[in-house]
Amino acid sequence: MSSDTATPAPPTDTPTAPQGERSRSSRRVSRDDLGLLLGLPALCAVLLGGWAVWRATAELDDIEARSLAWGLLVQLFGEHLLLTALSAAAVVLTAIPLGIALTRPAARRAAPAVVTVANFGQAAPAIGILILLAMWLGFGVPVAVLALSLYAFLPVLQNTIVGLQGVDQTLVEAARGMGMSRWSVLGRIELPLALPVIMAGVRTALVLAVGTAAFATFINAGGLGSVITTGLYLFRNSVLISGGLLIAVLALLVDWAGRVLELVATPKGMR
């Protein structure tokens, strides 16, 4: 887990462009990134458009029509997105400060232990955490957000630690030697330099959360997962596949948003 959360995954759809290409082209968005930035939304548009055409023209029975009603889907889409956004926000607000704290000299030694604990959240099956928490704390959106946050906590924590540890220590000492306070070194030197790695963690967390949010329906917290379960219970393959497709498209879009975030977060001098 640690190796693939630590660095942003290299784009896989353009195998001809080596990684070095990225560092050579200065300031402007590199060709790899541009491909991803434009290609992903285009792919999503094609998938979504194709599905919409099918939905509008296919002959659906009563159950199918009701479970795939436009209004309902939009509502579920919104719920799904809200679950994802809330849990990602919760993770960012807790994991990043914890990661910062664990890289300060006083707490540095505790870092491996905390990462191990965070690993449990990641290693346990998502649905297991969700159900257990629901049994303990009850059903509903807040518990779903808590479960998703636990699940997506590790990549952000780990990347915050790795990102901050990866900042050249001579730069930190140079900053201290110039008379910057510890806080100002953190805010003006360490965090900006670690931001690309931290953002890669946030993107991973977003993608984990959007996928896992499909289970939220089991504890009555809404989301597109209910389309899949409806399809399963009522033996309607069209509904089942529609649910899967919509979640996949949403996941791709969230991943895309994460990439945009990463790109924006990378300081200008380091692109």
Binding site: D168, L171, A174, P192, L193, P267, G269
Partner: peptide, 9 residues
């Protein structure tokens, strides 16, 4: 210090 240690960002 050595190499200038300029802040890259």
């Amino acid at each position: 210090i050595q190499g200038g240690s300029l802040f890259p960002h």
